[in-house]
C-alpha cells in the first residue's frame, strides 16, 4: 500500500545569478512499512527533498501526498498539526527540548495534540530503545547516541504514518551509528513504521530495504 507519493517536485532557491535548483522534478513512491534510504553527496538536494516531504518547506512546484492527503493544500497551521499527527522527525542534531526530561520530550508531540499518551505503548518504545533508566534525565545529561534514541522514541510515540530521518547518525561515531541504525530498523519493523532516511553514508544506507540515489536534484 502506498503511503507516500511525490510528483514532479521542484524547488528553486533565489533568482538570477544566485539561483539554485535544489530539486528538479522528483517523483517517488513509498509503500507502508518500507525502510527507504536516500543517498547523495552534500548539495545533491537530499535535505531539501526530506524537508519538502515533511512539509517543513514548500516546493516551487509539484505535489506531496501522505496517507492520501495532498499536504501542500493545507495552510501553515493545519500543516503543522498534520505533521505532528502523521510525520515523525529524527534530526542529525537530535533537537530535544533542553528543559524537558526524556519522558516529557518523547510524549511532547502527543500532548501537543491534546491527547493522553498511551502509557504502555510509550513504555514499550522506551524499553525497546533501552532508555528505561534515563526516563527522568535531561538531554544535556545524555550521550549523543542516547539523545538520538530519545529522538527516535519521540518520532515513534505518536504512531505517525511515516518517519523522516535526516542524517540520523551524522553526529555519531561509527559504533554508535550502527547501534542507532539497528534500533531504528528493529523498532520500525516492530511498530510497523514507514521510514525515509537520508544519508551520505553508503554503509548506513545499505541497512535500508531500498536505497535510491539523488544527484543534482534528480533521482538517478
Amino acid at each position: 500500500m502506498e503511503i507516500l507519493r511525490c510528483e514532479g517536485l521542484t524547488k528553486t532557491y533565489g533568482s538570477g545569478e544566485t539561483k539554485v535548483d535544489a530539486l528538479r522534478g522528483v517523483d517517488l513512491s513509498v509503500n507502508k512499512g518500507e525502510f527507504l534510504s536516500v543517498v547523495g553527496t552534500s548539495g545533491s538536494g537530499k535535505s531539501t527533498l526530506l524537508h519538502t516531504l515533511g512539509g517543513l518547506d514548500r516546493p516551487t512546484s509539484g505535489k506531496v501526498i501522505i496517507d492520501g492527503k495532498d499536504i501542500f493544500s493545507l495552510k501553515d497551521e493545519a500543516l503543522t498539526i498534520f505533521r505532528r499527527r502523521k510525520i515523525g522527525f529524527v534530526f542529525q542534531s537530535f533537537n530535544l527540548v533542553p528543559v524537558m526530561t526524556v519522558y516529557e520530550n518523547i510524549v511532547l508531540p502527543i500532548e501537543l495534540d491534546g491527547d493522553k499518551p498511551d502509557k504502555a505503548f510509550v513504555e514499550q518504545i522506551i524499553d525497546t530503545l533501552g532508555l528505561t533508566n534515563k526516563k527522568n534525565a535531561y538531554p544535556s545529561q545524555l550521550s549523543g547516541g542516547q539523545q538520538q534514541r530519545v529522538a527516535i522514541a519521540r518520532a515513534l510515540s505518536s504512531t505517525p504514518a511515516i518517519i523522516l530521518a535526516d542524517e540520523p547518525t551524522g553526529n555519531l561515531d561509527s559504533k554508535t551509528s550502527q547501534d542507532v541504525m539497528g534500533l531504528l530498523k528493529v523498532t520500525g519493523q516492530q511498530f510497523a513504521q514507514t521510514i525515509v532516511m537520508i544519508t551520505h553514508n553508503e554503509e548506513i544506507a545499505q541497512m535500508a530495504d531500498r536505497t535510491i540515489r539523488i544527484e543534482d536534484g534528480l533521482i538517478v
Partner: peptide, 11 residues
Amino acid sequence: MLEAVGMTKKM
C-alpha cells in the same frame, strides 16, 4: 524543532 514535531506557531 518544536514546530517540526508539530507545535503550531499559535501554541
